[in-house]
Amino acid sequence: MTAAIPEWSAVCAVDDILPGTGVAARVLGRHVAVFRIGAEEFFAIDNIDPKSGASVLSRGLVGNLGEHLVVASPIYKNHFNLRTGTCLESPEHSVMPHRVRVEDGKVFVALS
Rank of each mutant, 00 (worst) to 15 (best):
A44W: 01
V14M: 08
K51E: 13
I48Y: 01
D46Q: 08
L65S: 14
R36M: 09
F42V: 08
P50N: 13
L111C: 12
N64T: 05
P6S: 13
N81R: 13
F43P: 03
N81K: 12
R26F: 03
W8E: 04
P91Y: 08
A54I: 04
V62R: 02
P74F: 08
N78I: 01
I75C: 11
T21C: 10
P6L: 12
K51H: 15
E67P: 09
S112K: 08
H98V: 01
R101W: 05
D15G: 05
L69R: 12
N81L: 06
G29N: 13
S58D: 09
V100M: 04
D46I: 05
M1A: 14
S58P: 00
V109G: 04
S9K: 09
V100D: 02
A25P: 04
P91V: 09
S90G: 00
I37Y: 11
G20H: 09
V71K: 02
V107P: 03
T86E: 14
L57H: 06
S55T: 11
P97C: 10
G105N: 09
P97Q: 09
A24M: 06
G22F: 03
F80D: 01
H93C: 09
R26C: 03
V71E: 00
S112A: 15
A33F: 04
E7R: 15
V100P: 00
M96D: 05
G105P: 04
E7M: 11
R99F: 02
F108D: 00
P74L: 08
P50Y: 10
L82R: 08
E89V: 09
L61N: 07
L57F: 11
R83A: 11
A54D: 10
A110L: 08
G20S: 11
H68R: 14
H98N: 10
F43V: 01
D104P: 06
P6H: 10
V34E: 01
V11Q: 00
A39I: 09
F108R: 02
V23Y: 03
I37Q: 11
V95L: 09
D15M: 06
V107H: 02
E89A: 15
R99C: 05
I37S: 07
L18T: 07
F80W: 08
L69C: 07
G29F: 10
H68Y: 08
R36S: 07
S58K: 02
R83L: 11
H98E: 05
V27H: 01
G53D: 07
N47D: 15
P19L: 14
F43W: 04
I5W: 09
L61R: 12
F108T: 00
E41F: 09
V14R: 00
K106Q: 15
V23A: 03
R101S: 08
T2V: 13
M96P: 02
G60A: 12
T86M: 11
H31E: 15
G105W: 06
I75V: 15
C87W: 02
E41K: 14
S90L: 13
S52L: 12
P6D: 07
H93D: 14
E92H: 13
E7P: 00
N64A: 07
S52D: 13
G63Y: 05
V70K: 05
D104K: 11
V70G: 02
F43M: 03
E7T: 15
A39Q: 14
S73C: 15
H31K: 08
K106V: 11
R99V: 00
